[in-house]
Design a protein around this nucleic acid. Structure first.
Lengths: 340, 340
DNA sequence: TATTTTAACGCAATCGTTCCCGACAACAAT
DNA sequence: ATTGTTGTCGGGAACGATTGCGTTAAAATA
């Protein structure tokens, strides 16, 4: 069942006017006399008229709604990003359609195909770890769908991008560990193919090199699903702990991995930071309350969401395809607490 | 700018057929010969035809999208609920439109009015703490919009409701504290007008009464915005700590309040549970890793989301207004850890 | 052979809005 | 008196998909 809506026709019939006049009055056209306009507006308010957005969308070829695809909503970083997106979107009369890829390329594609059925005016996406073939994304982009990448970008697609300064964040974190006297620093990274993972790896490597610490391959392990499952982090950590020269510090490459590592150390009763230090990317507010309070690299998630939506707005509202695209790099924050 | 979509007309023109035939072929009607059908299907796939959902919605008077209004996405409980909703929705071809009230009745109403512009087929809502006048909600409900309440319900509106067993959860938590030897148990509650707050208060009171512990009003404090701001929790806790007979245990009435209390105790260097025990409602995965690990009452958030969406589906898909509504009460889980 | 049935397709209206054209007054300018 | 102008309004065609009904030819039946 559905709600029976009142339409422009109802108004025009009641007031003995044409639908054109009513439509124009509601849109405050100058072609309508003030009296008629007032009459229509009053009556419309009285019967609680709301324009049918589907009809409007069909006519205007604009839905005033955007799609957002992230890997998981229940992830502090992404929920904060969405928060930022929503705040700008609702201010500008846009509805936000959210779907989750759950780090699965298949689900991502499904959502994408669904959202792009001439339904959304624009898309903000943070690609899943699995994504390797972005044919479809590229296709809709070339057909003219405005897209903004957030956090996890695809270099091959030229459009606006909003990312954190992953290189610098990783660099600062690693350098911090070095300054604290740690030398056997392991990296538990996200999927190697991810843009953020590459940048963070690079920051890690450069910091080590500058300190003349050799970068060892066996000190770098990967979680191909970004720590979505704890077991993934567990086996990554286990492989590190089996090493002949165990690490004395862990640098975790994502929110879920960071908390996963923490969980691992708790489970294994590894003392932090005495036996093993821990620092990682995380936007979870509770990291501060952990024992020990976690040192983290925090991304300006809310602001990144705002920036992405603002950029998307500019694309959607511009008449002609934009030529110049910008990549906004927002700086991360290093919060040093007790775990390092 | 927008993406130029391919329509049924493009197909019909190219193949020298009528739009009716094309439409019927795409919908696999028996009135179309197999050869023609195949021809159309092949060509449609070739040019990557996607039906225009706005046009479909206009024709069918169904948008196949639902609205979800919660107080905040970046709240583990709600993000898990949304997770559950989305999983069922996408399986059934529905798009989820999420908006946040941020515990503001004004924002809630804005979102509601926006979503209900003949745009959504159904609504799942967890009302904000501020909400007191639900006139508009009642109005759209009476006009026939299927609504399902989750977690925070409005008794006056008769429809499906999905809630956790708040009474029992609170009862069990309080009883647990009593069994552990605590007797001066304070309740830091959510806004008093909220259904969940009332039920939890009741569970708290009954448990105390059964143990012949008098219920004292000054041991019950309220956070009118559900702990949205830390300052709110802080002042609530401060008023408790100023009491002549301070509490020896805190029972926190919501996710944000629980973590807020924990934060307060850390800040004030109050030893948990020696000086003050803490238990509370929370769905945050990290509570386990806090020091001490928090005892919590956990709600089946994901399952609640699933249930809500399932109920909403049944309402949306039924031809006539439903008469019988159910209130699904899902049981909570008491996780006893070190904070009590 | 004449008539009915059936298969396969087209026509045109419809959903609710918007907007390009007019239409038709009243009035001003020539 | 004729022509222009302006201010208000209505007619009707879109937007893209769906669908009841009508049409036509071929096939089946009498």
């Amino acid at each position: 069942m559905k709600l029976s809506a009142v339409t422009i026709k109802d108004i025009s019939r009641e007031l003995n006017l044409s639908t054109s006049t009513v439509s124009r009055a509601l849109r405050d056209s100058h072609e309508i006399s003030i009296e008629t306009k007032q009459l229509i507006l009053d009556y419309a308010r009285k019967i609680n008229y709301k324009p049918n957005r589907n009809a409007q969308s069909l006519k205007e070829k604009k839905s005033h709604s955007i799609g957002v695809i992230v890997s998981e909503i229940a992830n502090s970083f992404f929920s904060q990003v969405i928060n930022g997106i929503e705040s700008i979107a609702s201010k500008n009369g846009y509805t936000v359609n959210i779907s989750q890829s759950m780090e699965s390329a298949e689900r991502e594609l499904m959502n994408l195909e669904y959202l792009t059925s001439s339904f959304i005016d624009g898309l903000i996406i943070s690609v899943s770890t699995e994504t390797k073939n972005h044919l479809y994304l590229k296709e809709v982009h070339e057909k003219g769908l405005p897209i903004v990448f957030v956090d996890r970008v695809i270099d091959e697609i030229e459009t606006h991008k909003v990312i954190a300064d992953n290189f610098k964040g990783a660099y600062k974190a690693t350098k911090h560990l070095i300054n604290k006297g740690y030398s056997k620093i392991a990296l538990v990274s996200n999927h190697a193919g991810l843009s953020i993972a590459k940048e963070r790896l690079e920051g890690y490597k450069v910091a080590l090199s500058e300190a003349k610490i050799p970068v060892k391959d066996n000190m770098i392990v990967f979680c191909d699903h970004g720590g979505m499952l704890y077991s993934e982090v567990e086996s990554a950590m286990n492989s590190l702990m089996r090493l002949r020269t165990k690490p004395d510090a862990i640098f975790a490459g994502s929110d879920k991995i960071t908390t996963g590592c923490m969980r691992f150390m708790k489970n294994k009763k590894i003392r932090v930071p005495e036996e093993l230090a821990l620092i990682g990317f995380s936007n979870n507010d509770l990291t501060e309350l952990l024992s020990p309070p976690l040192s983290v690299i925090k991304q300006p998630a809310f602001e990144m969401g705002e920036a992405a939506m603002t950029l998307l707005l500019s694309m959607m509202e511009s008449k002609r395809p934009q030529q110049k695209f910008e990549t906004r790099i927002q700086s991360t924050e290093l919060l040093i607490r007790k775990s390092t």
